[in-house]
Design a protein around this nucleic acid. Structure first.
Length: 469
RNA sequence: GGCUGGGUGGCAGAGUGGUUAUGCAGCGGAUUGCAAAUCCGUCCACGCCGGUUCGAUUCCGACCCUAGCCUCCA
């Protein structure tokens, strides 16, 4: 039985889909004015994991992740670059797709763009005005009247008076209430704009998600996710908009993933420590980043530094070592995995418990040990069986998708002085001859030479294998 | 100030009212020409003070420390 921590009630709740065996999932995607950073990577990986797991749990999942391709930051950046905003957004959407592909993120079912759904947004704003939840300001901006929505604050656990007590809200003469937020922004000359009943302008950020979610998923859907910081005000405002417009609760479960810190500091512009996905991928392999993210609970804060990434590499090396040398076609044939095994049950129980990937991963290591044991006992059939299960379960997390041999021989961040596979094989061949002659001095010299270039040798009963470590 | 979380062994990081997390690192053993890898065994733990309990790291309360949000932010 799947349990999900619902941010709406701050507790784990049994998950009951609206329609049996079907799940509609909406996740707030990124605003495309720059390269994706590690925080985006976490959202991508976490909800990719959720998407994959729900599918293997037997659900038909419609996964919507939007792209915000019009907003103030985009306009500002496009102006700085002196280019049309669409050129800017197209470039970073392409970059985002590259990053996703690198990290092994499955494509969402639908990836709507804000600019492709302006009529729906205008329609929703019109309804909100009709129902008196919104008003047109003297500057032709349209605002949502927060005080009109009784439940305002229910997601973030805030009361209006508490929010008003905060001194950080800018005073604005046009708004009736400083907490009111913009639904439609009148365009200044030269700004990208769309026609609307209130003049030319563009939608506010919050209405984008409300409108796109309703358009694609309907008046009520199962899960809405996003980064923790979006809980307030973004998701709070979405609730205010959607529920005021539709007239009832629209989202059953809210999921928020925790933040990533960099060397124990908040990622921020002022600290200039924004690590983009592509920067990180210069030093680490995508699967290492994925493991790093999945090896802590999605709601916990996660600190990015060298050690946990190195640990991720070591952990994956252990898992791949278990798979190495086993017949690839047999272990990738999931039909060889035992059905309804005790390990799979524990794996799924962990995942059912609010996506406890960390505990699920521990099952992976138990399987690795099992494989190694069987292999020591020369029970290859048993090892294959366990390996097929390991592949299957790891696959649910999007891990161990590489062929083991390719993993070990692939480039790592350690500079291997550019030795080619053939050069390495040749040196190993020389060493094997020395070994046969029991010329241990020559033997060890060759091994040391390779080690200095980042190549680790392992002598086994079937000969010498190597890896770039 | 308001609202959420969190404090676990050398590090990372789960979890549990009484019994093994897991990975890396350490120690002992097996294996190996020596290593590496692997297997077996093993050390190291639950912020502080009270309470509930036969028994609490796990539940409750206070305290200390810490993170996030309250402004754009994944």
């Amino acid at each position: 039985m799947l349990q999900i921590y619902n941010s709406l009630h701050n507790r784990k709740e049994e998950f009951v889909p609206i329609e049996p065996n079907k799940i509609c999932l909406y996740v707030c995607g990124m605003t495309v004015y720059d390269y994706c950073h590690l925080g985006h990577a976490r959202v991508m990986v976490v909800f990719d994991m959720v998407y994959r797991y729900l599918q293997t749990a037997g659900y038909e999942v419609t996964y919507v992740r939007n792209i915000t391709d019009i907003d103030d930051k985009i306009i500002k950046r496009a102006n700085e670059n002196n280019e049309p905003f669409t050129e800017l957004t197209e470039r970073f959407i392409a970059a985002m797709h590259e990053d996703e592909a690198a990290l092994g993120i499955l494509k969402p079912s639908v990836e709507p763009r804000a600019t492709g759904n302006i009529p729906e947004m205008i329609g929703m704003i019109s309804q909100l005005i009709e129902k008196s939840y919104a008003y047109v300001g003297s500057n032709n901006d349209v605002y949502y009247s927060v005080a009109k929505f009784e439940d305002y604050g229910k997601l973030s656990g805030r009361k209006l008076e508490d929010l008003r007590a905060g001194e950080r809200i800018a005073v604005d003469q046009v708004k009736k209430d400083p907490l009111d937020f913009v639904l439609w922004k009148a365009a200044k000359p030269e700004e990208p704009a769309w026609d609307s009943p209130w003049g030319r302008g563009r939608p506010g950020w919050h209405i984008e998600c409300s409108a796109m979610a309703q358009k694609i998923l309907g008046d009520r859907f199962d899960i809405h996710g996003g980064g923790h910081d979006l809980q307030f005000p973004h998701h709070e405002n979405e609730i205010a908009q959607s529920e005021a417009c539709i007239g009832h609760q629209t989202v059953n479960y809210w999921m928020h993933n925790g933040f990533i810190r960099i060397n124990d500091e908040k990622m921020s512009k002022s600290l200039n420590n924004f690590s983009t996905i592509r920067q990180v991928l210069e030093d680490y392999r995508p699967e290492e980043v994925r493991y790093f993210i999945l090896n802590s609970h999605y709601r916990s804060p996660l600190n990015y530094s060298q050690e946990p990434l190195d640990a991720a590499r070591a952990a994956l090396t252990r898992l791949y070592t278990a798979l190495r040398g086993l017949p690839v076609d047999q272990i990738t044939d999931l039909g060889n995995a035992p059905v309804d095994s005790e390990q799979e049950q524990r794996f799924r129980a962990a995942m059912d418990d609010d996506f406890n990937t960390v505990e699920a991963i521990s099952v992976l290591f138990e399987l690795a040990r099992e494989i190694n044991r069987q292999r020591t006992d020369e029970n290859i059939a048993g090892a294959v069986k366990a390996a097929a299960l390991l592949k299957k379960l790891a696959g649910i997390l999007g891990l161990l998708n590489t062929d083991a041999e390719a993993w070990f021989k692939g480039q790592s961040h350690v500079d291997s002085d550019g030795l080619s596979d053939d050069e390495i094989e040749t040196l190993i061949q020389q060493r094997t001859e020395a070994r046969t002659n029991k010329d241990w001095t020559a033997c060890d010299a060759l091994r040391d030479e390779l080690k200095a270039k980042g190549i680790v040798l392992e002598d086994g009963p079937g000969g010498t294998s190597w890896r770039r470590g």
